[in-house]
Design a protein around this nucleic acid. Sequence first.
DNA 1: CGCGGTAATACGAAACCCGTATCGTGCCTG
DNA 2: CAGGCACGATACGGGTTTCGTATTACCGCG
Lengths: 312, 312
Amino acid sequence: MELRQLRYFMAVADELHFGRAAQKLHMSQPPLSVQIGRLEREFGTTLFDRSTRRVQLTPAGRHLQESARRILAEVDSARADMRDYVDGLTGQLSVGFVSSANYTVLPDVVRLFRARSAKVALTLVPLTSGEQMERLRDGRLDVGIVRDENPAADHVSSVPLTAEVVFEERLVACLPIGHPLAQRIEVTVDEIVAVPMISYPRLLMPGFVDRVTEVLSAAPHAANVIQEVVHQETALGFVAAGVGASILPASVRQLIPASIAVVPLAGAPTTRLLAVRQTRTMDDVRGTAFIECLRDAAASSRVLTGSQTSKR
Amino acid sequence: MELRQLRYFMAVADELHFGRAAQKLHMSQPPLSVQIGRLEREFGTTLFDRSTRRVQLTPAGRHLQESARRILAEVDSARADMRDYVDGLTGQLSVGFVSSANYTVLPDVVRLFRARSAKVALTLVPLTSGEQMERLRDGRLDVGIVRDENPAADHVSSVPLTAEVVFEERLVACLPIGHPLAQRIEVTVDEIVAVPMISYPRLLMPGFVDRVTEVLSAAPHAANVIQEVVHQETALGFVAAGVGASILPASVRQLIPASIAVVPLAGAPTTRLLAVRQTRTMDDVRGTAFIECLRDAAASSRVLTGSQTSKR
DNA sequence: CGCGGTAATACGAAACCCGTATCGTGCCTG
DNA sequence: CAGGCACGATACGGGTTTCGTATTACCGCG
């Protein structure tokens, strides 16, 4: 029993006429008769009562008709499912994101993606950049939205990743409102380095930590890291408590309490959000569609807010 | 997409190893790779991530896996269904019967058939012999249990029918209890012909009417038919009312009221139950199984009651 | 009793599928 | 780091399957 035979059988069962069925199947009548005959020999029963004048289903034929209808419908739906899947209309997409992305492009991106790919099950996983890079390599994430990571960082002969900058914003200093620098229009690297700093564990977000280190390295003295915290919110808590200052993306402004002052850094150093994925899966339609949403949302947000940021 | 390809695909998906999958499929590895590649080109996506070291399903592959599993299961069950059907384990069987068969073999037959072919849906249709012959010819009945019909009766180039005698019993005269002949051990044809007779419409049961006519034709005078009725029960009602006598199969004794006497006919003429079916469908397993039950039940009933019948 | 229509059969050509041989590649080992 | 090994991909020839054309066999009708 092969699918071709079932299709032939259904055509004859529909037409009850070998000639017309063959025509519908774009073939000639003799091989059609042969294939039907083969089915009949396989099952050990006639499927059609046929004379030269009349073709009729036997009871056994009617039984096969029901089964064949189910099978062919199943096959058609499988074909459609596969087509929808490769076209990116259905399926699953796991996207990781750094919490700070929540305050910039992410909400718009998600709204856009849900509109464009309504049937794709989108899983959003909040993770630090470092965690995302790991999960991207082992495939637990399809797309990562990370801050300042270098995808080429060689995890010893690991899966190659590809990144694309989707958003760039200024780095700002967050200071307790009472701090001498708190009322400034901007502060220099030299000035901020003198303040005790609240930083992050390099393991969890190597890109951002390295970026901040790089920016601060313009100063003659090294920064004095007085505290490491995992979340921006925690960092802001320490700042509000007067423990020290912290360098953060400008978009954190949205969750700044009155007790904290945000002061842009002189020289307008920036930090970047990158969309990262496995180079191998660059042809994945859902991932590509998602990143397309990222580009579009970032573009319109730039139009709205002005190419970079930081007016208070 | 062909079933073979789906089977190959599932083998590789199970083994995650082309060589072992090929072995399991009793074929060599190269054509297996080719067929998988063909599927992938058809769907426009890779189904396996494969290096020489590792074979893994892609997400698209997992989607196809689910569909393929369903399809192959559906095909297997279709094959099993067809096998069960041609083996006569399942299906439908329409059997017609004359009401008088209810008093002889029929209950045993049905019990036997239900035991032997439990999953076959048996439809029992009470019909006169004439009605059954018509429905047998146009296929509305698979098997008919008729009385004294001649299947060769040429319904003008119609479907040929085949009959088999399954039960033979004596014809008896039914008389009002007060009738002069009612106390006799037996009556002759000459004697009964003198009594007004209750008969049946020849159109509905030509075989039985002709048989009775044939038996009575041994008498010098023709019978005096005073009433025609459709059902035995009605005939007995007329007899009980003293309207006349009626010739019936001996098995009617079971529904004789006290007001009617049953007297065997001299010469022990008999009437026969026949199982009839289309000659064309003599290979139908369910019909054959049913008739087998008829033979077996009739045989054991003969053993129990003695080859023919009629002791009171 | 021929004629139109239809399914079955015969047979040669094309397509398809499989097996053997071989290649390319990634991983392991000495 | 060079060689060996395991494994999937490719090349190619042979056998099987399937198809199309031509023909036959059969049925119903005028």
